[in-house]
Design a binder for these strands. Sequence first.
DNA 1: CGTGCCCTTGAGTACAATCAACGTTCGTGG
DNA 2: CCACGAACGTTGATTGTACTCAAGGGCACG
Lengths: 239, 239
Amino acid sequence: MIDKHLLKLRARDDVSEVEESLIRSFVSPATEIAAKKTIIRAGDRLSRSTLLLEGMMCRYKDLANGSRQITELHVAGDFVDLHSFTLKRLDHNIMAMTPCVIATVDHADLKRMTEEAPHLTRLYWFTTNLDAAVHREWELSLGRRTAISRTAHLFCELQVRLGIVGLADDKGFDLALTQVDLAECLGMTPVHMNRTLKDLRDQDVVEFRNRRVVIRDLARMRRIAEFSTEYLYLDREAR
Amino acid sequence: MIDKHLLKLRARDDVSEVEESLIRSFVSPATEIAAKKTIIRAGDRLSRSTLLLEGMMCRYKDLANGSRQITELHVAGDFVDLHSFTLKRLDHNIMAMTPCVIATVDHADLKRMTEEAPHLTRLYWFTTNLDAAVHREWELSLGRRTAISRTAHLFCELQVRLGIVGLADDKGFDLALTQVDLAECLGMTPVHMNRTLKDLRDQDVVEFRNRRVVIRDLARMRRIAEFSTEYLYLDREAR
DNA sequence: CGTGCCCTTGAGTACAATCAACGTTCGTGG
DNA sequence: CCACGAACGTTGATTGTACTCAAGGGCACG
């Protein structure tokens, strides 16, 4: 059930048997969430965090005029709101983008972890810092990359992150999002998103259709995106 | 010396006498850094973190074409790279924007903290999550706010963050940045930055001149920015 | 088999970038 | 003390990327 979560952690550090059992003892039974459901709203007081087991979720913020910015996409294995453990309430919303399976962990258990399992604490601290690193890369995309580069970059990021949990390879990956969803990640309008995807398709770099990203030329996609995996911290280190 | 840092922490949670002594025992003597100096480069392996005592620093990432995105500004009292404790190396650079005074804390001491001071650990974990919240707000700005709203928003954020450490009030604050620096925060060109500042000045909202932000109409500035302090987590909570 | 959601494309517009020139300020050395 | 240069700021003219408005097509699902 939490195997994808463990794959994500073990891509970055060792997780001992004892730690694995501790994690398992924290995790609630799995429940299902319908697509498009916002499960956490900005400002809600929270007493547990959500582990995404299957599906895709996002963090988003809205402006008064109705425009929306997705600030991060979450894939299976991600702790989507581990940061609520110290923040107590969130500054953003969390929504299921596809049908999802989740489990939860009580903040009381996490507090116990900080008192009794320092290495695991550091590892989970690390994963929230990883989310921040993704935020920074998106800031760079939104502030400085062109529409086509930004789009290629998102596909590069998802290919690596989904790859870690066995859901992507060099040929591509399933991605059950609409062009409107992508536009909300990439800070553009749906119309321009459509034209940018057409551009990438016409250049034989990558094709997004039927809820699947088909990578035609991974090297060129990465070149267009100026993609480097460094911000995803894929080295195994003692954290 | 670390009084501004304590002000920042105590704006969000209690810090006991014992914890304060522990922090003091970690912190190295202060040293000075010249303006424009990049003190940490992406990829460097790090064994200590930097506490900013006076001045302003930034985190930035560059693209191959030379364009730069500043992903966060740091004010006195901020731990500018506490996240390097778990990340081991950074995905971005850190530069002094003004002459600065810093101190450092060894990661070995922070590791001891995670083993012996769980509440302080959670509080510092919180501060890295606070940085991530700022990143998210900037993603929203870069992706969805107009140039004028984005600019007003940055001034609003700095006014609050500097206010916490006693360096800003409702009338304004000192800000020793150039228009190029601001442009690199806000994802625009220096020319457009200049015109946007002129726009805000002509509207009698806020004026940036002589390295000072003079706030003419705080309420209107916040309205233009669609600013809310929620993402800065100003409530005192048991973290 | 219609209705709604998503995708696509065209036409016109606008916000911001680019290119270019000039002004201002300030530090420094002749 | 003034001349000079460098960095920063300002403005105008032009270009271009992306937005807006609009219409129509494809496809899935009830």
